[in-house]
Amino acid sequence: MSEPDSIVPPPGVVPDEPEADRADRAGGTGRVQRAVPAFRPPPGIRPPSALPIAPPASAFPAAAPGAERGAAPSTADPRDPPAATGPWHLRSADGIEFSVPDRVVAGRDPKPPAWLQGATVVAIPDHTRSMSKTHALLEVRDDRLIVTDLDSTNGVRVWPEGSEPADLESGVPAEVPLDAVILLGDVAFLVERAPADSV
């Protein structure tokens, strides 16, 4: 008496192959592509905003002619401050632009505190309301751009090109390098320098 080559289970123990899989196998394909369910964060975890991290500089449309970014020569010592060109300039991907000639208080509807009276006020449209009314101070010190979070609800993030982003501590000034991205809440701005002859 010969032994069987394989064990065959009784009928009904192993479910039948789904019709779709059987049809694909008959057509010569060996794998069935299945849709991956959408990811949902666990309860209590805030889902990422529309712009959770800063986009690269390439995500911003090119500046208008005459507003090209200035840059330090590639042979400069990296410890040297950036080459002095025109004023600092911030530009969002959806066309919001403003310059920082001295001190600027930015937000949805800025009301500068008493110690910042006389600063330029820049109201920034923000339909997501991720930005506070009085969100941040931008100022120029010794030809460097400095940003300070003015106790905003959703914070200020600075993302230097080629580096990791940093969330700023409220009230603590931080330097912003050329070509970095600043996020005020979820609104991102590319940091540029206007040409020196535009002053």
Rank of each mutant, 00 (worst) to 15 (best):
P165G: 14
P101Y: 01
A194D: 10
E97K: 00
G155N: 11
S163T: 13
T120C: 04
I182E: 03
G66D: 14
L145K: 01
E97Y: 00
A59E: 15
D126L: 06
G155F: 13
A38W: 02
P11N: 07
G70W: 01
P15C: 03
N154H: 09
T29I: 14
V13A: 15
A119T: 09
A35K: 10
L51C: 01
S170K: 12
V156A: 10
P41S: 08
P10I: 03
P112V: 01
D151G: 09
V140F: 07
N154R: 04
A174W: 14
G66H: 11
D102R: 07
A136F: 02
A194I: 02
R22E: 12
M131V: 04
R22W: 06
L184M: 03
A57E: 07
S2L: 11
V199F: 05
A72C: 13
R25F: 07
P55E: 13
G30Q: 10
K133L: 13
A188P: 13
G70E: 14
M131T: 07
A59I: 12
R141M: 10
G70A: 15
A114I: 01
P82K: 01
L184G: 06
G95N: 06
P43A: 11
K111P: 02
E19C: 03
A84Y: 06
P177H: 05
S99F: 02
R40D: 12
R40N: 08
P113T: 01
A76L: 14
A174R: 15
G118R: 04
I182G: 02
T128V: 12
W88G: 10
M131E: 10
R79M: 12
S132E: 08
P42C: 06
Q33C: 03
G118L: 06
T120Y: 00
G171V: 09
A54S: 14
R141Y: 03
P87D: 08
P42I: 04
